[in-house]
């Protein structure tokens, strides 16, 4: 177990270093980053001053080491637009993104697993049809469009929820539904097929022949056995939601990281873009590591085979 843990931690650190390299070079993809960040019309002296101030005139390797060393110290550079450290801005916005992604995921899990288990246990029933429809639409309806339609129906026409911001406790509902809809579809599909597979197992028939109630069979046998397959998918969906909230946060003016990234991209504030890209990747890598460790703890087969 310790060996497995150590290997995974070292792997994750290497991944992080790789991401750092990618993020550093992305901004230099078109050559001199000055031309990305300073308007074309700016006079030559101003461009030169900017280049000097940002250190873009130094050798590439020096720039990279400086960038990496800064990150180790917690210095992600300063935002050009906000004129304050990128890290401060990110930490300020982080809770909103986590909150939104968590609510979206919980919503998706609760609805998907309920429908998946009930529907999967009764193939062909109305709930099963609903589950299959959700599974299909979750994959085919773009979340940014769903967000607009939700605003139109529930904010503009019915007036039940606010259409933007995070001022009231119910502000999270529409963005969470729009963000989590795709994950819900995926989880319904997965739960349903896991249940369909499990319900033919011998131990279910044994439980049924012993006269155990349908609910207990569902909760004790079907859900527990299906949950193993669900854990890793849920972790993947969570990182997907954390990284995928750009559209939703922009549409709903949700004060999170995705919204900040959109503003940074819009304002060509690349130091901030770099910091956000690195930070979100960091969370995804950390989340994957945690899931793997949790998985190894739950299922001994994994820690022994590797």
């Amino acid at each position: 177990m310790q060996r497995y843990l150590l290997t995974r931690v070292v792997q994750s650190l290497f991944l992080l270093l790789g991401v750092l390299i990618v993020v550093f070079f992305l901004v230099r993809l078109t050559g001199d980053p000055t031309s990305l960040m300073v308007a074309k019309e700016a006079p030559a002296e101003q461009r030169e001053a900017f280049r000097e101030a940002m250190g873009f005139n130094r050798p590439l390797i020096v720039q990279f080491l400086d960038f990496g060393a800064g990150i180790l110290r917690g210095d992600f550079g300063d935002s050009l637009h906000f004129r304050q450290p990128a890290l401060e801005l990110i930490l300020e916005r982080l809770p909103a993104t986590f909150y939104l992604a968590t609510v979206a995921l919980l919503l998706a899990i609760v609805i998907a697993i309920t429908i998946g288990i009930i529907g999967g246990s009764n193939p062909g029933s109305a709930i099963d049809s609903l589950g299959r429809a959700l599974g299909l639409f979750g994959q085919t309806i773009p979340n940014f469009w769903l967000a607009l339609i939700l605003i139109l129906i529930f904010a503009v026409n019915l007036g039940w929820f606010p259409s933007f911001g995070r001022d009231t406790s119910i502000s999270v509902v529409l963005p969470a539904v729009a963000l989590g809809f795709g994950s819900m579809g995926q989880l319904v599909r997965l739960t349903r097929s896991a249940v369909l597979e499990i319900r033919n197992e011998d131990y279910i028939r044994t439980a049924r022949s012993k006269g155990i109630s349908q609910f207990k069979i569902g909760a004790r046998h079907v859900f527990r056995n299906a949950s193993l397959a669900l854990v890793s998918v849920i972790s993947i969906q969570y990182s997907y939601l954390l990284g995928g909230s750009i559209y939703i946060e922009t549409i709903f003016s949700w004060p999170g990281l995705g919204n900040l990234l959109q503003q940074a991209v819009d304002g060509r504030d690349f130091p901030l873009v770099q910091a956000i890209a690195f930070f979100i990747s960091f969370f995804v890598i950390a989340l994957t590591l945690l899931t793997d460790v949790a998985y190894a703890l739950i299922d001994p087969r994994i820690r022994y085979s590797s």
Partner: peptide, 23 residues
């Protein structure tokens, strides 16, 4: 596979948005 895993570790949407903004 090392390179592949690095690219897969960056959330796809973030990656695409950043590259598109640069290019």
């Amino acid at each position: 596979m090392g390179v592949v895993n690095i690219f897969l570790a960056i959330p796809y949407l973030v990656f695409v948005v950043v590259v598109a903004a640069i290019l």
